[in-house]
Simulated assay, not measured.
Amino acid sequence: MTFALAIPSAGGSIESYIQSVNRFRILSQEEEIRLARSLRDEDNIDAARQLVLSHLRVVVAIARGYKGYGLPQADLIQEGNIGLMKAVKRYDPERGVRLVSFAVHWIKAEIHEFILRNWRLVKIATTKAQRKLFFNLRSMKPVLDTMNPAEVNTMAKQLGVKAEEVVEMETRFNGRDISLEPLSEDDDDTFSPVAYLTDGSEPPQLLEAEQTRRLRGEGLERALASLDARSRHIIEARWLRENDSATLHDLAGELGVSAERIRQIEAKAMEKMRGAMVAVA
């Protein structure tokens, strides 16, 4: 069974969206069970919609906990909403567990996957243990300062990873952008990276750099050309616009499908593009 629900979009003002979802009434346990049974036994889409709408505020609360990863809050909420809909679809009212308790896992799982797919600093979070490290490092650190060896070993043991992986992940979190140029024209004593980095002016380096740029450009064009029109439109709208990139719900409304369907098309397109890029390289 699948269903697509018309729910408020987080693509506009976050404040307006929060006000909107807070207007939906919280269901009693008896109402929740009745609606869940109606969905299960009768495929009642309206029952599913009521269950989802009454829990949208939960998604907002969970998504707020992931602000520190540098991703749009609207996208985090939309991914969490997909997790909520999956939870509603799989919820069993006979187990005696409230939907909110069951849905938290699905909401967090979708948000986690979205962050791991899109956060550029994450390179080592490939195993279950490393993902656990990624999402627990900040909350488990006793202080904001760099951890000492004993603290590193304790965290590694608790999370089932190597101490080296804890150190590497902490380094990624603590890394900061460095300005290549001096911050002030009056600061003559400041040695910024631009003063001592090589300029790469040797002919072999220039040739290699030019070849790399050409191959990447050709690879991207070939990768995009391998997609059908709808997939290409989604990739360009989501990732290739310099400003105002589209959210999943923006494209869902434009193309008349669910946000989850947009995400599925996007994932398949990305996989196809990676294959094309490798072929060019």
Rank of each mutant, 00 (worst) to 15 (best):
A279V: 15
L251A: 02
R238L: 10
L240S: 01
R274P: 00
I235Q: 03
I234S: 02
A276G: 13
G256F: 03
S258R: 04
L240Y: 12
S245C: 08
E242Y: 11
A252R: 00
D244V: 13
D250V: 06
A259N: 04
A252S: 03
A237S: 15
A259R: 00
A267Y: 07
A267S: 09
R274D: 06
H233N: 01
K272R: 15
A252G: 03
W239A: 12
A279D: 06
W239N: 10
W239D: 10
A276P: 07
R238E: 01
A259T: 09
A237G: 13
R274H: 08
A246W: 09
G256D: 06
L251I: 12
A252C: 01
A259F: 07
S245F: 01
M277V: 07
A267N: 03
K272Q: 13
D244G: 09
E266S: 13
L255P: 08
S258I: 11
V278Q: 09
A246M: 12
S258N: 01
L240F: 15
I235N: 09
W239Q: 07
A237M: 10
M273W: 04
E260I: 12
A279L: 15
R241D: 03
S258H: 02
D250A: 07
S245I: 12
R241L: 08
R261N: 03
A276H: 12
L240D: 00
S245K: 15
V257W: 14
L251M: 08
E242R: 15
G256R: 07
A276R: 13
N243V: 15
N243G: 06
K272F: 01
H249E: 02
K272D: 08
H233K: 05
E254L: 12
M270H: 04
T247A: 07
K272V: 08
R274Y: 07
M277T: 05
A276I: 03
L248W: 03
G256M: 03
I234V: 10
L251V: 03
A252I: 08
A246V: 01
R263V: 01
R261H: 14
R238N: 01
R274E: 11
L248K: 05
L248M: 07
E242M: 10
E260Q: 08
M270D: 00
R241A: 08
N243A: 13
L251T: 04
E236G: 06
E266Q: 12
A267V: 10
T247N: 05
L240C: 04
E254V: 10
